[in-house]
């Protein structure tokens, strides 16, 4: 019984194969597309996060806030006019060059000369003798009253439903 000629069989087999291949490809494409969408979504959300962080950074760097923090925690003031000199105009005294002999035949050392002997790598920096000053109560109250921290600001955006 010659139901299928070999040629027909081949054609069918080929059709089935390409059908399967097509399905496989289309699945792949769909898969890739959904992954792409996922990436796009996450890029979008990362971008949104970056915007938020930049806004927070800008909000934390308000000159008014920095000034308040500096007044509280730093023992420095903005330079007064009489503390400034024009670098170009100022007549800095030039130190005379000192001649000194350089030892010519030294062994190249791979450690800081000043360290002398063993280099204590990763030595912890010396602990500060005095604790950094804790914010005064006055400051904290002021901070509470005046400083709109970012979350509060975000919360404040916009009106009522």
């Amino acid at each position: 019984m010659k139901v299928l000629k070999p040629r027909t069989f081949i054609v069918f087999a080929f059709a089935a194969l390409s059908g399967a291949l097509l399905l496989y490809t289309s699945q792949n494409v769909q898969d890739a597309q959904s992954r792409l969408e996922g990436y796009e979504r996450s890029i979008e959300s990362e971008k949104e996060k970056i915007r938020l962080l930049r806004a927070e950074w800008a909000s934390l760097n308000r000159p008014e806030r920095l000034e308040r923090l500096a007044n509280e925690f730093l023992d420095v003031l903005p330079p007064a006019p009489d503390q400034m000199v024009d670098r170009d105009a100022a007549n800095f005294e030039i130190q005379p060059a000192v001649e000194f002999e350089v030892e010519r035949d030294f062994e190249p050392v791979l450690q800081p000369v000043s360290a002398g002997g063993e280099v204590k790598s990763h030595a912890a920096p010396p602990a500060p003798k005095t604790k950094p000053p804790a914010p005064s109560r006055e400051f904290r109250e002021q901070e509470k009253k005046e400083s709109k921290d970012f979350n509060k600001l975000i919360g404040e955006i916009g009106g009522q439903p």
């Binding site: 903005p78 330079p79 006019p81 400034m84 000199v85 024009d86 670098r87 105009a89």
Partner: peptide, 14 residues
């Protein structure tokens, strides 16, 4: 002006 000079780094005339 005195704060501005500090921020902008404008040196005073000697």
């Amino acid at each position: 002006i005195s704060s501005m000079a500090a921020v902008l780094g404008i040196p005073p005339a000697p």
